[in-house]
């Protein structure tokens, strides 16, 4: 996930901004980390460079 698109994404539930927490990055993008809603506190994982912004009840808990 590229950081310059941060201002386009939001929490799928309440549509508030997300804070980015980076665990791993390369030159171009964030590979692992999380996106945390500034309003409801829900945390959305970034895995393999893909932000998982599915509503929490649709998220698969088991790793693919």
């Amino acid at each position: 996930m590229k950081e310059d698109l941060m201002d386009i994404i939001c929490c799928p539930l309440d549509k508030h901004d997300l804070d980015l927490e980076v665990d791993e990055r390369d030159d171009e993008e964030v590979l692992a980390g999380s996106l945390v809603c500034t309003e409801c506190g829900e945390s959305y994982p970034i895995e393999d460079g893909i932000p998982n912004l599915l509503p929490p009840d649709m998220r698969e808990d088991a790793p693919a």
Partner: peptide, 27 residues
């Protein structure tokens, strides 16, 4: 799709997991 970004040298395309009636996209 993410693998195909590299194949297509398309650095202005981003994919995310999301649901279309709960879009994770700002107003």
């Amino acid at each position: 799709a993410r693998e195909n970004v590299t194949e297509n040298d398309a650095d202005n395309v981003e994919f995310r997991l999301g649901e279309i009636s709960h879009l994770p996209v700002a107003d």
